[in-house]
Amino acid sequence: MLRVTELDAGYGFLRVVHGISLQVNQGELVALLGPNGAGKSTTLKCIAGLVRPWKGDIAFRGHSIGGLRGDLVNGLGIGLVSESLNLFTGMTVYENLLMGAYSVPEAEKRRRSLDFVFSLFPRLAERRPQLAGTLSGGERKMLAIGRALMGGPSLLLVDEPSLGLAPKLTQQVFDALRKLSDDGLTILLVEQNVTATLEMVDRAYVLEQGEIVLEGSAQKLSESEHVKDVYLGVMA
């Protein structure tokens, strides 16, 4: 469904991503793991059209989308939950969700998406008339995911869902993502929390200093010496 080939990207004179290639198949839940500053978020932003790639190709369903503007990428069915969430803090929860369905013209489809999001996160239904800026951290995360789902994406990109959340809340968010994936949604996830992520995803890539150093099934990666040493060592 998504194929990234030899992607180079960065900011100013600083190259952050060096020739990354990765692939996400229909219905998969794939994670991009790695330490801070490895280029995970930049990769995701390139796919979503928020950062212009320097080199390489990004193909979605066979069509090249590299360098396409973010609003157009969204229109093709790629939803992004960014690291900073980018919620509209001066709007209510309801309005934020409505904005998520900005490019969905059918009212009926919007209503069904809304019902779905509220059933996934009942908490949001309770907070419906509240300003997004006044929500708690966990609720914001749910709202951001909900907003991305409102557009009815076929591929969901999620940047650091565990960031800033307590373990219990993280688990709730992870459960929701797992459930979405089980329902057939394709998800590409960026995470630093390696243990919890590997328990949930199908496949993963490990990114270090802008390059992919390991890839494989979650099972295979959990058993890899490198992952054990570098990421699981402290906890195991």
């Binding site: 900011y11 004179f13 928020l50 950062v51 212009r52 503007r69």
Partner: peptide, 17 residues
């Protein structure tokens, strides 16, 4: 001395394109 824009700034300015 070339300016090194922070990540957020760079994203915003890229968005402008």
């Amino acid at each position: 001395a070339a300016p090194q824009p922070g990540e957020a700034g760079a994203v915003l300015s890229d968005v402008r394109e």
